[in-house]
């Protein structure tokens, strides 16, 4: 019973963390776009527009949930939940500090990837059940994209497992914690001595951007060019949950990159506790993702699939082979 209550607390904190991030990352994104395009962005509601996200949330809640004629009602309603739940489930397993973690899971890395890929199912549900050919095509597009970039992502995470010899996320961070130069991304210092790690980081970063449907890979929902995407028939909170799930996935991608390559909560100078270092690193990665969105134009769907199948997958396989070889030799 006490166990259940503890887990309930953990789950509620995870949901609140996801909702907070989704709300304020949208604001950060809109303000960032404003700065890059030399316009103010949302600045009316509250200081610096800080009241905009809660107001948007209330607006979404108060909208009518339209279920289109001929839609499969059960699947239509359950699709947003199916996108949101796995994302939160990943948060429950992610460590933010040596104490800020719901449960230290030995196969944490595998579990996060397993739940992250379950979101694809929600996309198929949403596209198929709305009885709209545009949403069905968009769902197919999204799925082929998500599926294509999952392979190099998983294989690159495998190189981290090779170096660390474990799939426990806590242990992966612990190995990088000695000092600044023991982070996995720095090739020559540390115990690992692996010159390929920056390359792994690049592949991982590109894949996590494509997995979360971010520009320049946002073919899942290109606003003006293709019809909105698999969630075209969704309004009100259905759309809100898809939105939250998407931003939750961005946070998960940035968190994983921090844990794998940037040393997690280990601090270079030790000015403040580890959690803050973790958050600084994570938001730096998220800021880079937002920055890229407003800098690069969108690719085409064929260019997207080619990048994955013809470049990233062979490259990540060769990278894995070389990493294993280097590790075995030294």
């Amino acid at each position: 019973m006490i166990l259940t209550l503890t887990i309930l607390l953990a789950v509620i904190i995870a949901i609140a963390w996801a909702a907070f991030n989704a709300a304020y990352l949208v604001l950060a994104e809109r303000r960032g776009a404003g700065i890059i395009q030399r316009r103010p962005g949302p600045n009316i509601n509250g200081p610096f527009g800080l009241l905009q996200p809660p107001l948007d949330g209330i607006k979404l809640m108060a909208k009518q949930l339209i279920i289109p004629d001929g839609a499969d009602k059960f699947m239509y309603i359950s699709a947003p939940v199916l996108v949101m739940c796995p994302a939160i489930m990943s948060f429950v397993a992610l460590p933010y500090s040596d104490w800020l973690q719901a449960q230290n899971i030995d196969v944490g890395l595998l579990m996060v990837f397993a739940f992250a890929s379950m979101g694809t199912m929600g996309i198929v549900f949403a596209g198929w059940s709305s009885r709209n050919k545009y949403s069905l095509m968009a769902a197919m597009r999204s799925v082929s994209q998500a599926v294509a970039y999952e392979i190099p992502m998983i294989i690159t995470a495998l190189t981290i497992t090779l170096m660390a010899g474990t799939t426990n996320l806590d242990a992966i961070v612990a190995q990088q914690s000695e000092n600044f130069f023991h982070w996995n991304i720095f090739p020559l210092f540390g115990e690992t001595h692996n010159i390929l790690m920056p390359f792994s980081f690049l592949i991982f970063f590109i894949c996590s951007m494509a997995e979360t449907n971010r520009a320049p890979f946002d073919l899942g929902e290109a606003e003006g060019e293709l019809v909105a995407g698999f969630h075209i028939e969704y309004g009100s909170m259905g759309f809100g949950l898809f939105f939250m799930g998407e931003y939750a996935n961005i946070v998960i991608g940035a968190t994983l990159a921090t844990i794998f390559f940037l040393g997690g909560w280990s601090c270079p100078f030790g000015l403040f506790p580890g959690v803050w270092w973790f958050l600084i690193k994570m938001y730096a990665i998220i800021f880079t993702i937002i920055w890229i969105r407003w800098t690069f134009p969108r690719t085409t769907i064929y260019g997207l699939l080619n990048l994955s199948w013809k470049i990233l997958i062979p490259a990540s396989l060769v990278n894995l082979l070389l990493t294993a070889g280097l590790m075995k030799v030294f």
Binding site: L3, I7, L8, V11, I15, M61, V81, C85, M89, M237
Partner: peptide, 26 residues
């Protein structure tokens, strides 16, 4: 055990958002 309980709790909590819309919205 932790994972299983967490999954069930999530499956109970997240749909509240959808229910809230049907109550609050038209």
């Amino acid at each position: 055990l932790f994972s299983i309980i967490a999954i069930f709790l999530l499956a109970a909590l997240v749909p509240i958002g959808m229910v809230a819309t049907t109550i609050l919205g038209p």
